[in-house]
Computed example of a mutant assay.
Amino acid sequence: MRILIALLCLFSTLSATGATLTLKIGEHSRTWQSEQLLSHPDARDITIDQDVAYKRSMHYRAVPLAVLLEGVGPTDHLQAVSFDGFAAEMPAGPLLQPGPARAWLAVEDPRQPWPGLAPGKPSAGPFYLVWADPQASGIRPEQWPYQVSTVSRLAPVEERFPALLPDPALKKDDPVREGFALFQQNCLACHRLNGAGDAQFGPDLNVPHNPTEYFQPAFLRQYIRDPQSLRHWPQARMPGFPVQVLNDKELDALLAYLQHMAPRKTP
């Protein structure tokens, strides 16, 4: 009983002092505590009208992400990793621009915690990448990582994970190439393919089997659009990709990439 009370006290203390965000940009890492970011000279109170995680308007204390990314250039590549293993791959350019779509790091105040994402679920904190006017730059839902723990500058996906690459003999305008780009934007944050990727969230999409091998085409499309409409369970975590996020032409290209990779399995 004493051990339990001690652990609860420790958890309470950690919650009161906030969380730690790690930025791995150069040779050395830099850490930010919640309190430091909440009192940052560039911190602002902002309103996000169409919040991706909460599905409603939300108010945050936030810092423009660009001011924290000292030394990062627009051609660099960044990865934001969440506590649950979600790993969002993002080109740095949109994150650095001052507008019209602007990236903010929302910081949860431990004294005024955000609501849970669902009944019995934790909040999107302690750190959440949100966007003002995301439609202006075509920002996708997977570019809103929440519960972020680390942001790192890395080599592009193509260099780090050659097992993801389609056949180099394909023409430049082949839909499979577009599908590969869409896979990076929409799928790689949760899934690996051929064991390649950093996500720890969802299953591998090629090993041992590719979904194009065991789903009928119409059902696979339905599953991507609305997973709960095909098989419903309370703990499901895969989001749907409606036409506003992934139009029919883009979905065709994504499926072309998956089908192309089915015979390109690697050990």
Rank of each mutant, 00 (worst) to 15 (best):
F215Q: 03
E159D: 13
D76L: 09
V245W: 02
A124Y: 00
E213H: 08
I139Q: 02
M1C: 07
A189V: 02
G99A: 12
K24Q: 15
T17Y: 05
H59D: 09
T13V: 04
R160T: 06
E159I: 06
I224V: 15
D133T: 13
R102N: 05
Q50I: 06
S123Y: 05
I224R: 01
M1P: 11
L254M: 11
V176D: 03
L170K: 10
Q228I: 13
E158G: 09
P239H: 13
L21K: 01
L78D: 03
Q50Y: 12
P110Y: 03
S12L: 08
R102T: 15
P211F: 08
A87T: 14
A262E: 10
G116R: 09
S29D: 15
F241Q: 03
F219Y: 13
D248Y: 01
I46C: 09
Q135G: 09
P141A: 14
F161C: 06
H260T: 08
A155E: 14
D167T: 10
Q79N: 08
L105H: 07
L230F: 01
I3H: 09
M261C: 10
L95D: 00
V151F: 03
V81I: 11
K171C: 02
R221F: 04
G197C: 06
A118H: 05
I3K: 08
L14K: 00
P267L: 15
P168H: 07
G179S: 07
W144Q: 09
F180I: 09
P166A: 11
L164S: 07
L251M: 14
M261V: 09
P227N: 12
P115W: 14
P145G: 07
H209D: 10
G179A: 09
A92H: 08
L129A: 03
G125W: 03
Q112N: 14
R177V: 09
R111Y: 01
R111P: 00
P242M: 06
V157R: 01
P162F: 12
A236E: 12
L205Y: 04
V151E: 03
G93I: 01
Y223T: 14
D173K: 12
R192Y: 08
T22F: 02
I25G: 04
L8F: 15
H232S: 14
G93E: 14
R153P: 06
N247A: 06
A155R: 13
P74Q: 12
A124F: 05
A155P: 04
P74D: 13
T20K: 09
V157L: 13
A124D: 06
L182A: 03
L10A: 13
